[in-house]
Each structure stands twice: as C-alpha cells, then as structure tokens.
C-alpha cells in the first residue's frame, strides 16, 4: 500500500502544476502568458509520466504543449490584448463559485474509494489478447472503443473545415529559408521526425505510442518543411491530394468499419486474425491525416490554390 501514498515528488509536481496554471492565467502580459502555458504543458506531461500514463504524456508534450503552444504563439500577434477586467461583483461571484466548485469536487473525490475503485480495467485486460494489440490504451482506442476514435476524427475534420472557411488565406509564415543553421538542422530533423513517426506508429500496438503521437511527430516534420519554404511541402498549396490526405484517416476508418461488418458482424468487429493489421492500417491512415490536420491548424488558414481557379 505504501506505493499508493503520496510522495514528495507528487507534492512538488502538483503544486508546480497549480502554481504554473495560476501564473499563466494571472499574468497580464500575453507573451509571458504563452511561455508559461507551454511550460505548464511540459510539467503536466511529467505529471502524466508520474501517473504511469506514458501515452498521454507523449500526446500532451507534443500536442497539448508544443503544438498548441506554437499555435497560440503564432496567432498572438493577430489578437490584440484586452485590458478590460470583469466588474468587481462578477469577480467576487466568480471567485465564490470557483471555490464552491473546488469544495464540491474535493468532497466528491474524497468520497471515492481510491483503494478498490471499480473500473473497466478488468474487462480490458481480460479481453486484451483478442484485441490484436498488446498496448491496452491502443486496444481501447482502436478496438474496444474504436467508435469514439472514429467520431473524434470527424471532430478534426470539423476543425479543418472551420479554419479554412474562416480564413480563406492562411496568414503568411515567415520562411526561414535563409538561415543556414536552420536548413542544416532541417536536413537532420525532417527525416528523423518521419522515422520517429513510423516508429511510434509501429510501437503503438504493444507499447506507448500510436496514431496521435505519430501524427504529432509527422506534423512537426511538415511544419519544418513549411517553415523552410520547401515548394512542394504539403500545405504550400491547396491541392486535391492535400484535401484527400486530410480526410484519408476518416475514409479508411469508415471503410474498415463497414467492410468488416459486411460479413454479418457488428460495425467495427474485426476478424480476430486480421485485427492487428486492420488496426495498423487505420492508424497509418490516421497518422497522415492527423499530421496534416495539426499542420493546417498551425497554419491557421487555407493555403492558396494552385490547382487552377481560386475557390
């Protein structure tokens, strides 16, 4: 039971998380707020590691901290800060409500039996051998609860459509083409990121990793290419293949979901023998789409068309 008890590391991590959050939201300066936000993401990733959630840690570090942080930094100049403050009575009310929320949550959480909490872990580990993968998180994401993931991919598509609609011309990225150091770094980084993505993808079936983490790595590669001003990099122009690649994950997912059910089985019920391959197929397609989606979000708008007429 001793392992369950709180340690100094837990205390420090927790306090640091809270402190950084308070600092992030409390600071008046926008730039400092963003830097603190990214730092906060890093600390939270550590927290995930401490809580034995390496899959989440990887995703948090890459998507939650790095990508969201970069996105925020990129958009900040276009968002003039507002110094206005909510009226005092509102602030007082909000503070009371926040404290009340905390009290209620703390009370509820303290009532949970943390030693022997009922959970779905039992059924998951019991059926893990039938799932086709050995990483339980991947098993949940792409087999037991694959339907969630399928719909989540649709959420990504909503975001892409929304961003392109709202911003028919992506705000310009300053190419770093002329910086020799950057270009040298690029030659190393891009292949590395691509290999990393492939590795993470493959790793996902038995160890922490998977489509999201791989997608994040791949999107970093795409972003670097974009920053370098590489003419044929994805995202330099709006092309049919780019759009097709953006929705490939969703399309493959649906195709597999329906395909496996055509033999009379349920939706997304993989034949046990093919489960691993099908999951890998879906994940591969997802990786590309997720990477491109994250890149589009970072770009913050639709690249100029090079197909022909402007849309």
């Amino acid at each position: 039971m001793s392992g369950l008890l709180i340690s100094a590391l837990d205390l420090v991590l927790g306090l640091l998380t809270l402190g950084l959050a308070a600092a992030t939201l409390g600071t008046r300066d926008q730039a400092r707020m963003l830097m603190l936000f990214v730092t906060f993401g890093g600390v939270v990733a550590l927290l995930w590691v401490r809580l034995r959630a390496p899959d989440v840690a990887l995703a948090e570090a890459s998507i939650g901290a790095a990508l969201t942080g970069g996105l925020l930094l990129r958009m900040r100049p276009m968002l003039p800060p507002s110094d206005g403050n909510a009226p005092r009575p509102i602030r007082a009310l909000a503070a009371a409500l926040a404290l009340g929320t905390f009290a209620a949550l703390a009370w509820a959480l303290s009532l949970v039996d943390w030693g022997a909490r009922p959970s779905l872990a039992g059924p998951v580990f019991e059926r893990l051998p039938e799932s086709g993968v050995t990483n339980p998180v991947t098993a949940v994401l792409l087999n037991f609860r694959a339907y969630d993931t399928l719909l989540e991919v649709a959420v990504l598509l909503v975001a892409v459509v929304g961003v392109w609609m709202l911003s028919p011309r992506a705000p310009a990225l300053t190419p770093l083409r002329d910086d020799p150091l950057f270009l040298a770094l690029l030659r190393l980084l891009v292949p590395f990121l691509c290999i990393l993505a492939g590795y993470l993808l493959w790793l996902g079936s038995f160890a922490p990793g998977g489509a999201f983490q791989a997608g994040a790595a791949l999107s970093a590669a795409f972003l670097f290419l974009l920053l370098a001003g590489v003419p044929d990099a994805p995202g330099q122009a709006d092309r049919a293949w780019l759009r097709a690649a953006l929705v490939m994950g969703l399309a493959v997912f649906i195709a597999v979901a329906v395909g496996v059910s055509l033999r009379g089985a349920a939706l997304l019920e993989y034949p046990p023998a093919q489960a691993k391959n099908l999951i890998l197929l879906i994940e591969a397609a997802l990786t590309v789409s997720i990477a491109l989606t994250l890149m589009v979000l970072f770009q913050g708008g639709r690249p100029a068309s090079r197909d022909g007429a402007d849309p």
Binding site: L93, A94, L97, G100, A104
Partner: peptide
Amino acid sequence: WAVGAVASAALAALLL
C-alpha cells in the same frame, strides 16, 4: 459572457 457564465455556475450550485 460573464453574466451567462455566472448564471450557469449558479444554476449548478442550485441544482446540487
């Protein structure tokens, strides 16, 4: 925004 947010939180409190 603030009025709505406070109202929703207040609703939650009352509901609880």
